[in-house]
Design a binder for these strands. Structure first.
Length: 243
DNA sequence: TCATTAACTGAGG
DNA sequence: CCTCAGTTAATGA
């Protein structure tokens, strides 16, 4: 994939969620960016590492995660094309978690130096990136509530509902079907249950005619049941800049 | 390797 | 007694 396509993915997302101006778009499109291909399940930046670039996902899915002493891993967030999962590293240089590819990915790296200069030259872009980081924090709050308080089937449904909403923004989800390329082990790591229990939960949702998850693709079987279970309110994604 | 399922267990309501 | 969820183990795709 060309680096133009990578920039386009970012701009498409920022246009919708931040109301970015054409001039700011041009400034972003002119940034030097280094494109790299990653296989699935590869570390992009690790906990404790000093980051010198920010990573823009052009193609594929990534997760952010932390691993505890006994080796168990918590998945903290799922990331899709057009996002910059490690934007915070621009100011927090030493990573406090891992960024890992889930699927084969095309990633674009923009140096901190470049981004810093852009911030001085274009305060509007700095504001947009700040806003993006705050939305990221809002998503973490929602994730905590989800994992901490909802029963397992609702937890899974909520993660699915959020992913659908975000994929829709970049034109990659239909209402009743979208990609969710996590193994059952990874689903367990995301919502705090074992892989065996993840399997039970998925089966239950399928048997109840709510939603099906098969080979990394979600199919909503009953929209009303799905919404009720997921208890999803998209306000925390703050998609319209005006409000 | 990943997904599936059963059987058993214990916590907690 | 019931639901939820972890563990173990066997088996299938």
């Amino acid at each position: 994939m060309s680096s133009d396509a990578i920039r386009a993915a970012l701009v498409q997302r920022l246009r919708i969620s931040s109301g970015i101006s054409d001039e700011d778009v041009s400034a972003i499109l002119a940034l030097p960016i280094s494109v790299k291909q990653y296989a699935a399940e590869r570390s992009v930046v690790s906990d404790g590492q000093r980051a010198t670039d920010c990573c823009l996902i052009a193609e594929g899915f990534c997760v952010r995660s932390k691993t505890i002493a006994d080796g168990r891993r918590q998945i903290l967030s799922i990331h899709i094309p057009g996002e910059i999962p490690d934007l915070m590293s621009l100011f927090l240089h030493v990573m406090d978690h891992d960024l890992v590819t889930l699927t084969p990915c095309t990633l674009g790296f923009i140096s901190h130096e470049t981004l810093r200069k852009l911030h001085f030259r274009r305060p509007n872009v700095a504001e947009i990136f700040w806003r993006d980081t705050l939305i990221d924090a809002a998503m973490f709050r929602e994730w905590i509530v989800n994992v901490g308080q909802r029963p397992a089937p609702a937890r899974l449904a909520h993660v699915m509902a959020e992913l659908r909403e975000r994929l829709k923004i970049i034109g990659r989800a239909q209402t009743n079907s979208f990609e969710m390329p996590l193994t059952q082990e990874q689903i367990g790591e995301a919502i705090g249950i074992t892989a065996v229990h993840a399997n039970r939960v998925i089966r239950q949702l399928r048997e109840d005619g709510v939603v099906d998850l098969h080979r990394g693709r979600v199919t909503v079987l009953d929209e009303a049941k799905f919404q009720e279970l997921a208890d999803f309110d998209n306000r925390y994604l703050h998609q319209s800049p005006a409000t």
